[in-house]
Structures are given as structure tokens and as C-alpha cells.
Simulated assay, not measured.
Amino acid sequence: MGKRRWIGLMAVSALIAGGVAPGNAREAMRDRLRERLAEREARPKAPGGETISYGSDALQTLDIWRAQNAKGPAPLIVFVHGGGWKRGSKDNASGSFKPRHYPAEGYAFASIDYRLVPGATVEQQAADVAAAVKALVDRASGLGIDRRRIVLMGHSAGAHLVALVGTDERYLRGAGLSFADIAGVIPIDGAAYDVPAQMKDGPAIMQATYAQAFGTDPVRQKALSPTLQAAAPNAPQFLLLHVQRPDGVRQAEALGKALQAAGAKAEIESFPGTGLQGHAEINRRLGDPAYAATATVDAWLKRVLG
């Protein structure tokens, strides 16, 4: 048995010995691994960022970096972090490359916090995404932003949230916006675009997280599923990125087909990487010029935003 696997089994055994049920022990171990990955990937905040509150809750804040050397209002990328809808933050789950790379490419870049489960619902989280965009739109002239060239980008649970906001217009309407205010959406390696399917076929280790986020009501689960909300209208363009996790591949392809059938332009791009490590790497390294997904996203942004 490999050393890494032996250590993992010993850790799970210790949790079980401490009175944690086997299934919960595996979930607790996975939570600890995620937290360690987040800590390892955390970097000092890129210089030049400004923090803005977009609501009264302490988590309703965002950081924004202005476009460098912009000649006139700049396009805006709004990033939504992952973390199973219950953890993560703009400070440790955005990766270190994005707030440097995108402003250097001529885009303003914002990374948002949002209220977390169980203190908030997934519906409130999607509303937070829309509210953060509205706060930036309202400050567009002062921040040098072109309010008509906005792209939503999110990783993991954040990929689900930006896809949901990009397919169910009620969240944008609740903030006084519409799909006309969103030029495109980039979900990164999400795996809950069809919630009922993921709760049926997804990894057993994630089922407690899904149940906490989406509950047991099939009607609510469907309403929170971008794939099942993808009938027109939608945001006009999508770029779906995934690594080689079977459920992530399956879910991205199904969402892409649903969007295309509804008349939205949806591209699907596949990259190397498996398991939690590949899932984390595509987020951590996006914006690194040496990482393949960076060039793919850069080319798409230039086509969509000009």
C-alpha cells in the first residue's frame, strides 16, 4: 500500500475511533484535505486591489483590480470562488495568477465573497453574485469599467453559481439587471449543473455536501440546476472548462448541449487533470501563461469582449 493512501486511511480510522461515523469520517477527511489545499494555494493579495461592500453582511464584499493601461472603459471579469457552497473565500480560493494576469491583459478583475451555507441558501448565494455585479455596474464610471462587457467566471461551486445566474434571469432581475448586462459566462470544472443527476450519480463522498446545499425537494433541485434551466433566454455565450473527472465531464457536456439547443453559444474545452488535484489545479493555475487553459480563455475573451 502506498504511503499516501496508508496515511489517509489512518486519518479516517482516527476520526472513526473518535466517534465519527465512517461516511462522515470520509467527508471530514476530504474537508481537511480541501482546507489544506486552500491554505497551500493562498498567496499574498495581488497589489492594487480595492475592497467594496455590496451588502450589509460581512461576507458581501469583493476585491477589484483595475485594468492596466486601459484606453477608455475596460471589460470586467467577475470571479466566484468554490468551496462546496459552504467554505472558501475570495482571499484563498481565487488563485494567485488571475488578479495579475487579467488586469495586465486589459480587463478589470473582481473576486467576490458571498454568504455561505448553512447560514444562507444557494438561492441567496446566486442573488449575491447578481448583487455584486450590480454594485460594480453602479460604480462603473469611477472604476473605469465598461458595464456592457461583463463576464462571469466561477470555479467548482462558483461554476454552478455563475451558470445558474447565466441561465435563470430572476437573479439578475432581482438586482435590477438582465442577461443584456452579461456578455458571457465561464464555469470552471463544476459538477452540479444538473443537481438531481449529480445527487444520483455523483461521488458518494460529496452527497452530504449536495444534500446540505440542495435539500431533498425535487422541485427545488430542478430550479437550482443550470442544465434544467437552460431553455431560452440565457446569457449569450458560455465557455465551459473541465478536467478529467467523470462527473465533471458528463455534467459540462450536458449543460453545453442544453445551452446550444436553446440558441446560446456554448463551447466546451477539456484539459488534463484528475481527482481533487486536477480540480484544484485548473483554478489555481488559470492566468499562468504556461498553463494551457490560460490561452484558451484569453482567446475566448478577445472574441467575446473585443
Results as ranks from 00 to 15, higher is better:
Ala104Thr: 12
Phe109Trp: 14
Ser56Trp: 14
Asp194Arg: 12
Leu177Ala: 02
Leu143Ser: 00
Gln124Thr: 04
Ala213Val: 06
Thr209Gln: 11
Glu169Asp: 09
Ile268Asp: 04
Ala132Lys: 01
Lys134Trp: 10
Val195Glu: 05
Val129Leu: 03
Trp300Thr: 08
Glu169Leu: 09
Leu177Met: 12
Asp113Pro: 09
Gln207Pro: 12
Leu255Gln: 05
Arg149Ile: 05
Val304His: 07
Asp217Ala: 08
Arg285Asn: 09
Leu37Lys: 12
Arg34Asp: 01
Lys200Ser: 12
Glu39Ile: 04
Val297Gly: 00
Lys71Cys: 02
Leu255Lys: 00
Ala14Phe: 14
Lys265Asn: 13
Ile64Trp: 02
Lys3Tyr: 15
Val129Thr: 00
Asp168Asn: 02
Gly166Trp: 05
Asn24Trp: 06
Ala110Lys: 03
Met206Glu: 10
Gly174Tyr: 01
Gly278Met: 07
Met153Leu: 10
Ala74Phe: 06
Pro103Phe: 09
Gly215Lys: 04
Glu105Asp: 12
Gln221Cys: 09
Leu259Ile: 09
Gln60Asp: 15
Arg43Asp: 09
Ala204Val: 14
Asp201Arg: 13
Leu59Ile: 04
Ile64Gln: 00
Thr227Arg: 00
Gly72Val: 03
Leu241Gly: 01
Val195Thr: 01
Ser13Ile: 01
Leu241Thr: 00
Asp146Tyr: 03
Ser13Arg: 12
Ile282Ser: 08
Ser111Phe: 14
Gly8Thr: 15
Met206Val: 10
Ala42Phe: 01
Ser53Leu: 11
Ala266Asp: 02
Ala213Trp: 11
Gly166Asn: 06
Gln207Leu: 13
Ala163Tyr: 04
Trp6Cys: 13
Ala38Glu: 12
Val78Cys: 07
Arg250Asp: 08
Gly19Ala: 02
Gly174His: 05
Met1Leu: 06
Pro47Met: 08
Glu39Tyr: 10
Ser53Ile: 10
Val12Met: 13
Ala213Ser: 13
Pro22Trp: 15
Ala93Leu: 13
Gly55Met: 04
Val185Thr: 13
Asp247Glu: 11
Asp194Thr: 14
Gly256Glu: 06
Gly275Gln: 04
Tyr171Val: 08
Ile205Arg: 05
Arg43Met: 13
Ala21His: 14
Thr296Val: 12
Val165Asn: 01
Tyr114Glu: 05
Gln277Cys: 00
Ala110Gln: 00
Val195Asn: 06
Asp128Glu: 14
Phe79Ala: 01
Val78Tyr: 12
Val78Thr: 11
Ala192Lys: 02
Gly154Lys: 15
Thr121Cys: 08
Lys90Cys: 01
His155Pro: 00
Ala130Tyr: 10
Ile182Gln: 02
Asn283Ser: 13
Ala42Thr: 15
Ala254Ile: 12
Ala293Glu: 06
Arg4Ile: 15
Pro73His: 02
Ile150Trp: 05
